[in-house]
C-alpha cells in the first residue's frame, strides 16, 4: 500500500508538470512593451516553484516508500541535521528564493505601475458599467467633457453623461464601443466606473486593473502588434459578468486616424 502510494505521488507530480513543461496550455503571446519582463518573471517563478514542487513530492514519496514498515523492528532514526538543519535550510533556500523573486518582481511591478505615462501618451477614457465598456476620445480639443451622472442615459446612447448642448468640451468628444489604438503609441487609459466594481483585463497586453467606483485610476501601455484582442471584465459585477467584454483593435496610425474620423461622424 505504501509503495503504491509513493508511486502514485510521483506519477501525479510528473503528470502535473508535463503540461507545464510542454506548454500545452500557455498564456497568449505578449503584444506589449512592458510584457516581456512579466513573462520572464513568470517563467522564473515557474521554474523555481516547479522544482520545489517536484522535490517536495519526490522526497515525501521516497520517505513513504522507505519507512512504511508493516512489521517494524529496531529503533527510530533521526534525519541527520535534525530540525536545526531544516530550519537553516528553509531560511537559506526559501529565504533567498523569495527574496530574489520579491526583489525582481518588485522591479517588474514598479516598471509597470509606478512609472508615470510619457508626455506624449494618448489619453483615452474607458468607462465600465453593467455589462459593457465604453471608450471616449477627447477629440481635437484634447479635453474630456465633464461627466454629469444625472445625464447618463443608455437608451439615448449618452453613456458618459456628457452635456452636448451646453458644454463646449463635449461637442468633439468621441464615444465608442470598440477600443481602437494606434500601434506602438503609448496609451494613457483613464478608468472610470459608473456603477460597480469591474475590471479591465487584456491577456495579450499583460494589463489587468480593477475599476474602483468613486475613484478614477489610470494605466499606461504600448501595444506593439496589430490585431484584435478581447477585453474582459474579471471583477464579479452581476448576472452578465461573463458577458462583459469589448474588443481592442490595434491599428496602424493611418487606419486609426481613418477609424477615428468615421467614429466622429457617427456621433
Amino acid at each position: 500500500m505504501a509503495k503504491l502510494f509513493a508511486v502514485t505521488i510521483i506519477v501525479i507530480a510528473i503528470a502535473s508538470a508535463i503540461p507545464i513543461i510542454m506548454h500545452t496550455w500557455s498564456a497568449p503571446e505578449d503584444i506589449s512593451i512592458h510584457g516581456p519582463i512579466i513573462d520572464d518573471q513568470m517563467s522564473e517563478t515557474m521554474a523555481e516553484a516547479g522544482i520545489a514542487f517536484l522535490a517536495a513530492q519526490f522526497v515525501l514519496a521516497i520517505f513513504i516508500w522507505m519507512f512504511a514498515k508493516p512489521n517494524p523492528g529496531g529503533k527510530i532514526k533521526k534525519f541527520p541535521g535534525g530540525a536545526t538543519g531544516l530550519v537553516i535550510g528553509a531560511f537559506l533556500i526559501v529565504g533567498i528564493e523569495v527574496l530574489a523573486l520579491g526583489v525582481f518582481g518588485a522591479k517588474v511591478w514598479a516598471d509597470v505601475y509606478l512609472s508615470p505615462p510619457g508626455a506624449n501618451a494618448m489619453p483615452v477614457q474607458v468607462q465600465a458599467g453593467q455589462f459593457a465598456f465604453y471608450f471616449r476620445y477627447p477629440g481635437p480639443d484634447g479635453k474630456f467633457a465633464a461627466i454629469h451622472p444625472n445625464l447618463i442615459d443608455e437608451s439615448t446612447e449618452n453613456f458618459f453623461g456628457i452635456d452636448t448642448t451646453n458644454d463646449p468640451d463635449a461637442k468633439d468628444d468621441i464615444v465608442t464601443a470598440e477600443f481602437a489604438i494606434p500601434v506602438n503609441k503609448e496609451i494613457h487609459l483613464l478608468m472610470h466606473s459608473k456603477d460597480l466594481g469591474h475590471s479591465f483585463y487584456v491577456r495579450e497586453l499583460r494589463v489587468h486593473q480593477d475599476f474602483v467606483p468613486g475613484l478614477d485610476v489610470s494605466l499606461h501601455f504600448t501595444a506593439t502588434k496589430i490585431g484584435k484582442y478581447e477585453i474582459v471584465c474579471t471583477q464579479l459585477c452581476g448576472l452578465g459578468h461573463y458577458n462583459m467584454k469589448a474588443y481592442l483593435e490595434v491599428m496602424s496610425q493611418d487606419d486609426f486616424d481613418k477609424w477615428l474620423k468615421q467614429q466622429a461622424a457617427a456621433q
Binding site: I37, I38, V98, L101, G105, Y113, H208
Partner: peptide, 23 residues
C-alpha cells in the same frame, strides 16, 4: 499542501498577479 503552497509563490507577486488575478 505542497501543491497548493507552490502556486502561492505566483500569486504573492503583484507583477505575475497581473496575469493570474481572478483566473
Amino acid at each position: 499542501f505542497v501543491s497548493g503552497g507552490v502556486s502561492g509563490f505566483f500569486l504573492a507577486q503583484p507583477s505575475i498577479d497581473i496575469m493570474l488575478h481572478a483566473t
